[in-house]
Design a protein around this nucleic acid. Structure first.
Length: 613
RNA sequence: GGUUCCGUAGCUCAGCUGGAUAGAGCAUCAGAUUUCUAAUCUGACGGUCACAGGUUCGAAUCCUGUCGGGAUCACCA
């Protein structure tokens, strides 16, 4: 199907004829020839020479000679050391382009039987989404898109952490000091409003803690427990303990959590109201990011799940019970610790819930492959979870992945919501769009457009800059995010790729209506054109690989590379003013194909293309 | 301390299923526009691929160790 694949198959056949050896095409190394050398593709002959019993140079000569004489697409060859550089006939290139342009949904993989669940974005409903969530959401969305393109059926889910002590802090602060304020009355977006109360709680709590530190009780505790810390260091460490055993506010927050668990109507009402505000706010942010979920799970519904699995695990002796009633799994045989799965008081821990949720999803959708897009601080947790599901012999257990990504930090250090030291998602989005607008106005290319069209274009450009900036890097890398740099619009950026697309669209507009006409007479194919076709040929394989490795950055780098090649082509070669009619037809067809693949690949990153910019 | 991820140009990153002289962008400097959108293109400057061994015809890539940084090792979520 793919022309490169076919070539590998041809070579494999040739080797078979020449030596009788069976070599799978997948084991051949065939790469585009480096530009310092003559040729289009290079076959590495070193590993093959032993089958021929000759030196690499001689082996390369034999293979090259055979290919040239027996296959039409090989026009010429040369040998340098163990490298066999093959030159393709012009017909090969024309045929390759023709084949691509004639393929429906080029790059789409064959249908895969396994359904995949991708979980991404696990927000807490006590504060707005921030930069860290953006990385998570963009990764999850992009991976979902890539998997779909590769041929999988994908179910996109999120789990919303809408219960727990942190949420109670926001609720309590609103109750005590909120004075009945609502998003409507304050004109503030719901998630931001609730986040303010979360910060306020922390402020009030700190004040309370400071006061307490002056009491005799505090001094006594310091004297008794401290070994070699200063007072300041000690109390910094003691903060959590203070919250749990001395703090008035802490006691109130914990009481609220208990009342929530007992479903006390007054608390439930407050919780539903404030959660509603936050979720509405999230919805707006998701929309701006251009993402959605097929199904949202809420922790308030799922936090009790998994207890029956604990029973099942005890029965199957996967778990064991301690004397105090707590239930554990022993993973020391695989070099991990013992891990608790149910508390002594019979309540769930985090992992209990995750066990239950996995089963629930399998029941809901039959997803046999599950991908969790979650920060790398939870690597250990997921290792344990996956191991448990394996030992419980779940049908999906062998296909669970944790797509872990590194933390996003600011140049000033880690983000801390409680201290208000964050980059909020909404603010960042607004900033990049504004930056795109400024830049576009300076250029002044958009004079004949309506205000609405312009706004849409600014948004596409700004979001492209942001998304590309985040997705082009390997997820595993910890990233230090400088808000100023992220809005760069030149160089290796989203807008650079959009610009290549826009240039093509501009050319096509000038031809009136897009028509792909016959170009089989085109004889003067040049290196820029070959290199574009060669990139385009790689696309289907790239999709499969990116899906296999859950690697959006591979797509991002491909799109950049293709755009770069097009810009180069554009500056060297005329399309509309081509030398001959055939050349013009060919270049229009090629340009249009490049535009399609640029749009298609950027779509996989959640980036949309403007028609002009 | 155990486990694990990361370390490539001043900065941000590609390349990692071993292949030719390690590539981009940003920044700095110098150029390109009567002709398809200059958010572009060309050139210059910039490297002990953290370090040391090993495997190999060949190592940024694989193995071992060391150093530096992050994460994690809760009856928290």
């Amino acid at each position: 199907m793919n022309t490169l694949h076919k070539l590998k198959k041809d070579i494999s056949e040739a080797i078979n004829v020449l030596t009788g050896q069976e070599i799978s095409p997948a084991n051949l190394t065939l790469t585009p020839t480096k530009k310092e050398f003559e040729g289009d593709y290079t076959l590495l002959v070193f590993p093959l020479s032993r089958y021929f019993g000759k030196r690499p140079e001689e082996t390369a000569e034999i293979i090259g000679d055979y290919l040239k004489n027996n296959y039409d697409i090989i026009d010429n060859y040369n040998v340098i050391k163990g490298f066999l550089n093959l030159g393709f006939s012009k017909d090969y290139w024309l045929y390759a382009l023709k084949e691509m342009t004639g393929t429906q949904d080029y790059g789409k993989g064959e249908h895969k039987s396994k359904k995949v669940m991708v979980e991404y974005s696990s927000p807490n409903t006590n504060k707005p989404l921030h930069l860290g969530h953006i990385r998570n959401i963009l990764l999850g969305w992009s991976v979902s898109q890539i998997l779909e393109k590769a041929g999988y059926e994908v179910v996109k889910t999120q789990i919303v952490n809408d219960r727990g002590i942190a949420i109670c802090k926001s609720m309590l602060a609103w109750q005590k000091w909120g004075d009945g304020v609502t998003p409507e009355s304050s004109g503030k977006k719901g998630d931001f409003l609730v986040g303010d109360f979360y910060v306020l709680f922390d402020k009030k709590f700190n004040e309370e803690y400071q006061e307490w530190q002056k009491t005799d009780e505090a001094k006594k505790i310091f004297e008794e427990n401290n070994e070699k810390l200063t007072e300041e260091q000690f109390f910094k460490k003691y903060k959590n303990e203070y919250f749990n055993s001395h703090s008035v506010l802490g006691a109130e927050a914990r009481e609220m959590l208990l009342n929530w668990e007992k479903k006390v109507p007054e608390v439930m009402k407050l919780w539903e109201m404030m959660n509603g505000w936050v979720l509405q706010g999230f919805e707006e942010t998701f929309e701006k990011l251009g993402v959605y979920f097929d199904k949202s799970y809420f922790e308030s519904n799922t936090y009790q799940l998994g207890k029956d699995i604990v029973d099942e695990g005890l029965e199957k002796s996967v778990f064991y019970k301690e004397n105090d009633g707590s239930v554990w799994i022993d993973l020391e045989d695989i070099n991990m610790d013992k891990k608790i799965v149910l508390r002594s008081d019979g309540t769930s821990v985090y992992i209990t819930q995750d066990m239950g949720t996995a089963d629930l999803r399998f029941k809901d959708f039959g997803t046999e492959k599950m991908i969790y897009v979650v920060g790398d601080e939870q690597e250990y947790h997921f290792k344990v979870l996956f191991e448990i599901m394996k030992r419980l012999k779940r049908p999906y257990a062998d296909d669970m992945y944790h797509l872990s990504y590194g933390m996003v930090e600011l140049p000033t250090g880690k983000m801390k919501s409680r201290e208000g030291k964050v980059v909020d998602a909404d603010d960042l989005i607004a900033e990049v769009i504004l930056e795109a607008e400024k830049s576009a106005k300076e250029r002044g290319e958009l004079e004949n457009t309506t205000e609405e069209e312009r706004a849409a274009i600014y948004e596409k450009i700004g979001m492209a800059a942001l998304k590309f900036f985040i997705l082009k890097v390997n997820p595993k890398r910890r990233m230090i995010f400088n808000p100023e740099e992220s809005v760069d619009l030149q160089g290796q950026t989203g807008p650079y790729i959009q610009n290549a697309y826009v240039r093509i669209k501009s050319i096509i507009r000038k031809t009136g209506k897009l028509e792909i006409k016959d170009f089989s007479d085109y004889a003067g194919i040049n290196e820029y054109e070959k290199s574009l076709i060669s990139s385009l040929s790689d696309y289907p394989e790239l999709i499969q690989q990116a899906a296999e490795e859950l690697e959006p950055s591979a797509i991002a780098n491909f799109a950049y590379d293709l755009a770069k090649k097009y810009h180069k082509f554009y500056s060297e070669v005329r399309v509309l003013g081509a030398e001959t009619e055939a050349a013009k037809n060919f270049r229009i067809a090629l340009s249009n194909m490049v535009a399609n693949i640029l749009r298609d690949s950027m779509e996989l990153l959640g980036i949309r293309m403007p028609e002009r910019m």
